[in-house]
Simulated scan of single mutants.
Amino acid sequence: MDVLSRLIELARLQPTLDIRCRLQGAFHIDHEPVAAGTLPFHLILGGDCLIRLGSGREITLRSGDFLLLPRGDAHAIIGLRPRGEMQPLRVTTGGMLPLRENGQGEADVDLLCGHFDCAPGSAALLLDSLPDVFHVSLAAESEEMLKTLVAMLYRETAEEKPGALAIITATCLSLFIMAVRAGKASPIASAGLLQLLGDARLGKSAVAIMSSPALAWTIDDLARHSAMSRATYARQFRERAGMTVGAFLTDIRMMLASDLLLRTRRTVADIAAEVGYESEAAFGKAFKARRGITPARYRSAEQARQTGQQ
């Protein structure tokens, strides 16, 4: 399995579609900030609109655009073609998804609004590498594939056949993966995991670490995987990843450990050995430094949180 697929699997992303919006003219819809572990997203099926963040920053979204807010920031959806007075919004709930409209006839924007829930610990490395506003034009990734996926979303939303919601949410996850993959090749952030994975040579060392996290990796070992000198590798790694090789290795181990703590009943000592620590004490110290809590308390707290959500 490639590194990006493995990171997305570990993040345990669960997409939920909240509402479909078909809007025209003047409109302004506020979204409050959400808790950590919840990532709001908007997918533009057709037309365009404006996203205004709490900071005042404005982003124009057009057909085929995907926008994710990894930190759950407050934002507003605003019309780009105000005509006359703002019409009242109405929400109908008879279909598969709630539908928000504000007029009759052709809409200026057709968008899906939803969110991803994730496992914060094992998703940290992936999400921390994303900017506060992750905005990607999926049309640039693969126009034909995008058209196929959007056509599927249109059809499944309109026809509401059995299983349609499962297909739509799975498609949204696919679109998220396409967005992250597209982001690897674009300068959406100055440094981070995506920049590292987008580097053909440095990415090889990330694959090596992910494949064998328990090995006692040295910079020399990883430099050989990337066919670089030790000094060049260390410098370029820090420039691309925004962190040292040692910090990245620790983050990978903590991410894998977080997943094992939640997904299995293995002892903390077993998990420590699995991710490359010779003693439970050393692992516990490193884990607390990254997560602010001991492994045992992390496990119990996350289990309690998940039980409360059910």
Score class of each variant (00 low, 15 high):
G64K: 09
K204N: 14
I167D: 04
D2C: 03
Q236N: 02
D251S: 14
A140C: 05
L222P: 09
T218L: 06
E302G: 04
R253C: 10
P40H: 14
E32K: 13
I188P: 01
Q309T: 12
A257S: 05
S129D: 00
L127W: 06
M96Q: 08
E32D: 13
G183E: 01
T171F: 14
L99S: 05
A182V: 01
L68Q: 06
A234P: 00
G84M: 12
A191V: 03
R71P: 08
L43I: 10
R83P: 00
A123M: 06
R155L: 15
L17S: 01
V34M: 07
I177T: 10
A206V: 10
G94V: 10
M243Y: 09
P187C: 14
G105Q: 02
A74G: 07
K288S: 15
S186C: 10
T16K: 04
I177K: 11
G54S: 01
M145F: 10
Q236T: 00
I177F: 03
R291P: 12
I77Q: 05
T294V: 09
Y154I: 10
E239T: 13
G46P: 03
E143N: 11
A191M: 07
T60S: 05
L149R: 13
G64M: 01
L165V: 08
G84Q: 06
L215S: 13
A185T: 15
D30C: 10
A206R: 07
K161A: 11
E32H: 13
K161R: 14
L196S: 08
Q14E: 10
P98A: 11
S279L: 09
L149E: 06
Q87D: 13
